[in-house]
């Protein structure tokens, strides 16, 4: 008599629906969010507690992830840093999604010269390197986290607009939209109440992937010194502050926040792709 492992008799397709990487990535992101929310409870030290006697310490029971040049505990700083590193991309995406989804839907719905105009504007913004645009905005309006979030939001809007437009174009041609028009429903109401909500699955997946990208871009800006500045605690800023220590042979101050950024971005990608696969295909 042969023994079968659980699930071995299920059709391959059903088994394939248990996406281990997605569960791992999703679980990790949940942990990061919990860590950010409960940072004051979890962190062993205050994130800005300076202890020059413990400067650039390696891992030890006192400092699980070591310390930076000022002797600040890296674990505490990474936990606190998760807050601005997660909230900033969220604000960025909210702005970009509002602009992008509106532009894309309007372009697809009205077609004609409205579409041409919006698509050309989008193309121009798309062709312009995003980071350069952001640096330009910062040069004009001054640096800081708010400016970089708003500027990045503007830079991301065209991408979302393009994607929304292509989705909305195919959705608009479906007979159920015609049925709403025959019912006497106005275009704005059809778009807001019915067309965009029917795109939400695909859009949410896309936004989750973009969240990872946004987090990375904001970290890059902070690293370059345009985004969050000292004394705020931000992963990108931590990498920048930690890079001098690399020369002195201490890798941890740059490595810890860098790893945090990389892991979160990868996790968002995995989850985002899965979400758009699952929700994007019609119900």
């Amino acid at each position: 008599m042969t023994t079968l492992t659980a699930g071995a008799l299920l059709p391959v397709k059903v088994r394939a629906r248990r996406p281990v990487p997605v569960m791992v990535a999703g679980g990790f992101l949940a942990l990061v969010v919990v860590a950010a929310v409960f940072a004051p409870l979890l962190a062993p030290y205050a994130p800005d507690a300076v202890d020059l006697s413990a400067s650039l310490a390696g891992t030890s029971p006192e400092h699980l992830l070591g310390t930076d040049a000022s002797g600040q505990d890296l674990l505490s700083r990474v936990l606190y840093g998760a807050r601005s590193s997660l909230l900033a991309p969220l604000a960025l995406l909210a702005l970009a999604a509002l602009l992008g989804i509106t532009m894309g839907t309007v372009a697809a719905w009205y077609g004609g010269w409205v579409d041409t105009l919006l698509s050309r504007v989008t193309d121009v913004m798309y062709a312009f390197p995003g980071l350069l645009f952001v640096v330009l905005v910062i040069a004009v309006f001054g640096d800081g986290l708010t400016t970089s979030v708003v500027a990045m939001g503007l830079a991301y809007a065209p991408t979302i607009a393009r994607y929304t437009r292509s989705l909305a174009l195919s959705e608009r041609s479906k007979p159920y939209i015609d049925a709403y028009r025959v019912q006497g429903m106005g275009g704005a109401r059809i778009c807001v109440r019915h067309l965009v909500p029917n795109l939400s699955g695909a859009l949410v997946g896309y936004l989750v992937v973009l969240f990872g990208e946004g987090l990375m871009s904001l970290a890059t800006l902070s690293y370059l010194g345009f985004g969050a500045g000292s004394p705020s605690i931000d992963w990108g800023l931590m990498v920048q502050e930690g890079q001098d220590a690399v020369v002195q042979g201490a890798l941890l101050p740059a490595l810890v926040p860098g790893t945090a950024i990389a892991a979160v971005v990868v996790a968002f990608n995995i989850v985002g792709v899965w979400v758009s696969d699952r929700l994007g295909q019609g119900r």
Binding site: P175, D178, A179, V182, P197
Partner: peptide, 16 residues
């Protein structure tokens, strides 16, 4: 005045 029923009921209803 006038209403319509489309050919394909698989795409003429709002899936949500």
């Amino acid at each position: 005045e006038i209403q319509i029923v489309f050919q394909d009921p698989y795409v003429s209803l709002d899936p949500r």
